[in-house]
Amino acid sequence: MIGNIAALAIVPVAGVAGIIFGLLFKGLDRVLGARMQARVGPPLLQPFIDVKKLLMKENIVPQNAVAWLFNAAPVAALCASIALLLYIPLFGSGALLEGSGDMVLVVYLLLLPSLAMVAGGFASGSHYATVGAQREMVAMLSYEFPLAIAVVSAAWLLASKAIAVQAFSLAALSAFPLWSLVGTLGFVGLAVLLAVLLFVMPGELGKAPFDVAEAETEIAGGVLAEYSGVNLALFYLADAVKSFAMAAIIVAIFLPWNATAMLSISDMWAGAAAGALFFLAKVFAVMFAGNTFMRIALARLRITQVVRVYWGYASAAALAGLLLIAAELVLVV
């Protein structure tokens, strides 16, 4: 009980940390993206400036919008994104809240910001936003399947190999690096699953080539078309936090090594610092591969193509990864 209350006190801290690092990584993404496009790009702290500007702007609610839902959606999106952070092991230490089955909860929490955007889009009463919300829903239905396969496969592998632990727990997943539990076949399978997760990441975050819901040249910002001021800032923050959380989840499942243990640092503070830095480096690597690189290298797909890519190629790849792991488990046992 006392532990829970202490954890509750840490919630705002986690929220602020998530926002700061989320925005920082957004800035890094923009600078690196610009360099890859032969541009100079904005300053590293531009996302902070953007949020500050948006917070100072007028908050406009369209006349034909459902005002309460329109205003509630951004808050819900940001809350869900911050709630995500509580369940993910961050900075080389454990998660603030943990327990059996939190992996399932995390997958659902990942959905919530997107659902909030859909609700806000429909509530804003604009055709562009309606089209965007429809697209966001279809995209959600598409990328959930490969995401679920990847997560379930990882948990199943852990459950089969280390029977004593709670398989669907992120803490357990990050305590046992999966790569050391498998042979060659399983290793390839895990690599495929990691690639699938990296591929799902831009879809989950609504970034190019899967930014169909916002598509500014087609539907003028889509779900966000009518949002402005504080509401838009909240969505912006939710996006930054969710990007950070999504990368941290991939790190927790597939790249859970801890610098403190690896370097066997005895000093507590030095160990924590090394762990935190190593964690940030891993998150950066995941963000770069799954977000920045894909965004720069590919053009936006049509919504029908998004569905085909996720239901077809990504799902097939995820199932192949699952089968490889299954084959290994059967062969070894």
Partner: peptide
């Protein structure tokens, strides 16, 4: 055209 396709990288390369 590349920008309309959501492919800003090509836009920046051709404009350079």
């Amino acid at each position: 055209a590349a920008h309309e396709l959501g492919f800003d990288s090509v836009m920046h390369y051709t404009w350079r």
